[in-house]
Amino acid sequence: MRTKLEACLDAINRVVLGKEPQVRLALACLLAKGHLLLEDLPGMGKTTLSHALAKILGLSFQRIQFTSDLLPGDILGTSVFDKDSGQFVFHPGPVFAELVLADEINRATPKSQSALLEAMEEGQVTIEGATRPLPEPFFVIATQNPVSQGGTFALPESQLDRFLMRLSLGYPAKAAEKALLLGEARRELLPKLDPLLDHAELAALQAEVSRVRASDALVDYVLRLVEATRSQAQFAWGLSPRASLALLAAARAWAYLAGRDYVIPEDVQAVLGAVVGHRLRERADATGHGGGTLVQWLLREVPAL
């Protein structure tokens, strides 16, 4: 199974050049059954990465382009009157796919955003009184432009919390960008990707990940980290229990990807920035964005042993 995972990583890395750590984190996120938020400037490869992931994992893929006039019905679907049968027939919206790419999620109004975010949390949608389950597995990869850019509605903290990880791709290294410029267009490579996993295999992987051992000593470390965010003065607020669960789940997936069946502190540290960065604010700058320096502080000061 692990060899297959390695193959998946290689395949994605051939499409998204020079972003091995982010690709690995993204895969870990999906293995931990979490939703992923990609935040970066336009044109950094966010969509390509999501596409590649969907392809490789063999998931049905839908893309919703969020705009300011997007309505909840455009996401969830609507009932339309069918003349022939004389009944309303439900037409499912794009959210009924296994992997949903919510592109530029922060360009839509909060009303439309929350339609998707509710679906993410519940695993089902309720339309016109009927509750309809979403497919299993169900992943959302949302991308957003940096908050500072015009025409954006920033996601509130309560909704940011629902994403297991937030990743930022960043500018590619020089060599990677050169390869990018010399090679084929990335979008053209995507259709050539073959699924490497099927649904059963993915479910098995996810089950295995959740069985990765987290010893007492390791859980203590996670608790120390969480406790530090709650007691230290520079944190505007502490991490929620959902965040500590997310941290442990992501660390398990990371350990599994590293070929281990137990978690070590280094696994927690590897995923810490992606998992808690969007959940923390500095007290001095509570409305600001990102807890990068806070994460650095946690990595440096909280005793790992």
């Binding site: 070590i264 280094e266 946690l298 909280v302 005793p303 790992a304 042993l305």
Partner: peptide
């Protein structure tokens, strides 16, 4: 360093 894991 306090935050350095044993393996690192």
């Amino acid at each position: 360093h306090p935050g350095e894991g044993p393996r690192d």
